[in-house]
Structures are given as structure tokens and as C-alpha cells.
């Protein structure tokens, strides 16, 4: 199994620093997700790993060797593009065969490998079709088959699911992860979709403005965000941030619950919650409103699972609680997480 590593990697386009001194190391056979909003540098980072972009400084290591000077074809990587980048003038068989031909593999062996990868992805029936005769989902599988066929040491995926419609995407997510687990290739997966990142990644690397903000398992990213960016980027609706002195008090919407609906919780913080609007979403309810009491009046969201049938009227005030353990503190100026429990929380105990 191959480990991918980048050290102090930087890429500048003129004045703009797209990737800013990023160091990151994958595990063996790991599914590592690069998550961030568009323009955060995640695709540039991926392209530098692939060799499609030259780093301004820093190193890319694949399997422990510095590959900065190697062209893409010498890096034994396979990449799947957002647009799939199938060769439109070739049929599916020739598309999949292309990397094998480039290696100079004997014809008979090529056919066996094509058959193997096509059957894994269930596209045996389409081998003679041209890409334009395929649906989005089918094209995506062809792109995966082409990446898979020469058994690369590394898989690089650049938003491979974002051109699929929502229903197909959920299915493809499942299939893609199953496939990766089965063949166990180290995979780097770029996405701006936190649901994909949370659902598929062994670990997630959150990027913003060219910097790495946090690396961790989906649970760590969600439960222990390193700063306010990660806290508000991951999770939908985002974490509530309430100002108090020079600190920000953060808690997830699902942690803000009606006092009456929570069974005995001795360490709970009590707040006043004035509901201004509610949204019924089926599995849960979103309550939009203003929290007061503990902090300045701040717009806040609460998410109640539909199993809590607590009656709420817009315009009314209610007593809500947050468990002390669910409150994260951030420094107001830097946005960084502060570990220490502030005095005012200790005082209310």
C-alpha cells in the first residue's frame, strides 16, 4: 500500500496563493477526503499530487519518494475528473484500454483487464458504446473503470459525484466506498459536499483559503472543530456561535433542546429561546429564534428530531437547555478553539 504525503506544499498563481504551506500524510489504503468551499485550493492540491501542476515550493511524496520532478504518467496514479474526461471519439472499451495501451501491455492481457474492471463496475454491456450514448451515472462508472484498470497505487478523485443527480449520488457514494474498501487503494477524494466527506472519508482534511484548518475523523471534525470556520462549514444547519466577552460559545442546533423534553440533566445551561419561525422537514424540525439570558441576544437555530413532539408557537418564549459538554469555546479574534472552560460557565454550576 502506498502512502501519499505532502510537505510544506505551496502553489502561487501570480499574487494569489492557492495552496499555502500544506503538510498532510495519508494512511495506507486510507480514504482521505479534502473538504472545503470552492476556491479553497483543494483541487490545486490534488493536481499537484497528480503532477498536473508544479508546486511553487514544498514536496510531494508518493510511496516515500519525492516525485516533484516526475510527469503524471510516471507517478502510477489514476485520476477521476469532475467532468469524467472520457475520450469522446473512443468507445468505452478503447477508453478503458487507453492507459493499458500507453503502458504497452500485450493485447490479450489488455482484454482480460478490461473485462475485469468493466465487470466490477457493471458496465460490460456498454463496451461498444460511445460516451455520448451513456447516462451520467454510466459515464462515471466508465471513468472509474478506466482509473481502476491498471491497478494504480493511488486513486485521486476530483468531485466525481457532483455531476450526478441527487438520487444517483447517494447510490454512487455507497458504491464508490464499497469499491475502495474492496480494492484497498489509497484514495484522495476532493469534494465541497460535507455529506460526501462525512459519509465516505476515513479522515477529512478541511481546507479554507489555501490553508489546512483541521484533519481528523468525521467524528472529530464534527464534534471537536478546531476553529469557527470548521464549526460553521461542517454541519447543516451550522453550529450556533454566541458572543460573550472576548469568546464565542458554540453548540450544534441539535444540542439546543426544550428543557421539558430533556430528562434530568444536571450540567445543563439554561437559556431563553424566543422562536420566530419554524420549519418542518419531516425527520426533524428547525426552530429559528433568538437566544437571550446567558449572552447577548443572538440569532440561533434549534433542531428537534420529530420524536420530540414538543409544541412550539412562533413568537413565544421557551426555556431551552444545552448540555455543558456540548458547548465549545472559541477565541473571538482568532476563531481558534480554546480549551479552558470560561469562568462564567464554571460559575453557573
Amino acid at each position: 500500500m502506498t502512502i501519499i504525503e505532502v510537505r510544506e506544499l505551496t502553489k502561487q498563481f501570480g499574487e494569489v496563493t492557492a495552496v499555502d504551506r500544506i503538510s498532510l500524510r495519508s494512511g495506507e489504503g486510507e480514504f482521505l477526503v479534502l473538504l472545503g468551499p470552492s476556491g479553497c485550493g483543494k483541487t490545486t492540491l490534488l493536481r499537484m499530487i497528480a503532477g498536473l501542476e508544479r508546486p511553487s515550493s514544498g514536496h510531494v511524496l508518493i510511496g516515500g519518494r519525492i516525485v516533484n520532478d516526475l510527469p503524471p504518467r510516471a507517478r502510477k496514479i489514476a485520476m477521476v475528473f469532475q467532468s469524467y474526461a472520457l475520450y469522446p471519439h473512443m468507445n468505452v472499451r478503447d477508453n478503458i484500454a487507453f492507459p493499458l495501451k500507453a503502458q504497452g501491455m500485450p493485447r490479450r492481457e489488455q482484454l482480460e483487464r478490461i473485462q475485469w474492471s468493466a465487470s466490477i463496475l457493471g458496465i460490460d454491456r456498454y463496451l461498444n458504446r460511445k460516451p455520448r450514448q451513456l447516462s451520467g451515472g454510466e459515464r462515471q462508472r466508465v471513468a472509474l473503470a478506466r482509473a481502476l484498470v491498471r491497478e494504480p497505487s493511488v486513486f485521486l478523485l476530483d468531485e466525481p459525484l457532483s455531476n450526478l443527480d441527487a438520487k444517483l449520488r447517494a447510490m454512487a457514494r455507497d458504491e464508490l466506498q464499497t469499491l475502495q474498501r474492496r480494492i484497498g487503494i489509497t484514495t484522495i477524494y476532493v469534494t465541497h459536499d460535507q455529506v460526501e466527506a462525512m459519509g465516505m472519508g476515513d479522515r477529512i482534511a478541511v481546507m479554507y483559503e489555501g490553508r489546512l484548518r483541521q484533519v481528523g475523523t468525521p467524528r472529530e471534525i464534527y464534534d471537536d472543530p478546531a476553529d469557527t470556520f470548521v464549526a460553521t462549514f461542517v454541519g447543516s444547519p451550522p453550529m450556533n456561535l454566541l458572543e460573550r466577552d472576548d469568546q464565542l460559545l458554540g453548540f450544534r442546533p441539535e444540542h439546543l433542546l426544550p428543557k421539558d423534553a430533556v430528562q434530568f440533566a444536571p450540567d445543563a445551561l439554561e437559556v431563553n429561546f424566543q422562536v420566530t419561525r419554524q420549519e418542518y422537514l419531516g425527520a426533524d424540525r428547525l426552530l429559528y429564534g433568538v437566544v437571550s439570558g446567558l449572552v447577548e441576544e443572538t440569532k440561533t437555530i434549534s433542531r428537534l428530531p420529530s420524536t420530540i413532539s414538543y409544541p412550539v408557537q412562533a413568537g413565544e418564549k421557551y426555556d431551552f437547555v444545552v448540555r455543558r459538554g456540548d458547548v465549545k469555546m472559541f477565541d473571538k479574534r482568532s476563531g481558534q478553539r480554546t480549551a479552558a472552560e470560561p469562568a462564567f460557565l464554571a460559575g453557573t454550576r
Binding site: L52, R73, A78, M79, A85, F98, Q103
Partner: peptide, 17 residues
Amino acid sequence: PQDIRDAAAVDGAGFWR
């Protein structure tokens, strides 16, 4: 499309191919 050239480069095609 640039993606197609990139794909060819990653797939192992040199200049002539």
C-alpha cells in the same frame, strides 16, 4: 477540454500518443 488532456497525461500518454 483541459480535463481530457489532463486525463491523457495521467493515463500515461506522452506527447506523441
